[in-house]
Amino acid sequence: MSQVKKGKVVSFNKWGYIFLIPFFVTYLFFQLVPLVTTFYYGFFEYYEKGIKDYGPYFYGIKNYIALFSGKLLLKYSLNTLIMWIIGFIPQIAVSLLLGAWFSDARLRLKAAAVYKVIIYLPNLIMASAFSMLFFTLFDDNGPVNGLLMALNIVPEGEPFRFFRYTLSSRSLVGFMNFLMWFGNTTILLMAGMLGIDQSLYEAAEVDGATPTQVFWRITLPLLRPILVYVVITSLIGGLQMFDVPQILTNGAGTPADSTTTLIMFLNNNISGNVNYGVGGALSVVLFIITGVLSMIVYKVSTQKED
């Protein structure tokens, strides 16, 4: 009897494998094989040159040596990091504030649902369309400069050239990232805050703590795991920054190559004439950075469950 039952269970459980077949076959073909070949190409000197290809010739780790001894990898990493920071600092500050308000039961914001809907909206907008919009609005001949002139902030006929200065270009990219992501972060932090034991707040209230004290002494420390999660996942997202600076600068990373991100660098090597060697090596570097950051997230997440 038990023998029969066991057999039956096993025969059910084979469906576990069967149902996973589509996932793993697809993953193998569309992700894993490309991933392995990408890494493989990193060890070759191999690029397309018009109607002919150069290579592949085995190149050892020379592609990596070239990447790390050249200035570009460092420069583009810094660009990416700086633009991420410009967007992330206001993002985390605003999100913490809004998250605290939304999760504060006593504040009873009547329109909270409407606010949430609106602040999340920019996250769903096509980044390329949004960038094109910003490009046209902040253009030398665009309406933002029209406004600045009408208000006599800049002289007539001499627009402020947003895309000509490193700071303003990077700030625009950062600002767009802020706009697109702070709603998402707010909702994550809010959920985290709602998960905090309400009795702690009540106790604090009895002790006469001010809202500011409650925020810094209770909310923030208890929120630490989810904050780390938000920071690291945002950093992983930041590493993939592409659409906004690509469209804003038409892929040129102007001014003075100060808005070229790591993925734009990768894109330069794999669109048009593909440079398999350099592109492959760069992909490995990006993979390792993301991997390290992901391990941190994984650690933090599992810690929380314990």
């Binding site: 003075a256 004439n273 350099v278």
Partner: peptide, 25 residues
């Protein structure tokens, strides 16, 4: 960017060289 005064002539030329080499390995 050189005309704009954003880059010196040498820096602008170096940037040109680097971008072209990226496209024409």
């Amino acid at each position: 960017e050189y005309f704009d005064g954003k880059l010196s002539y040498d820096d602008a030329y170096a940037q040109f060289e680097q971008k072209v080499k990226e496209k024409v390995p």
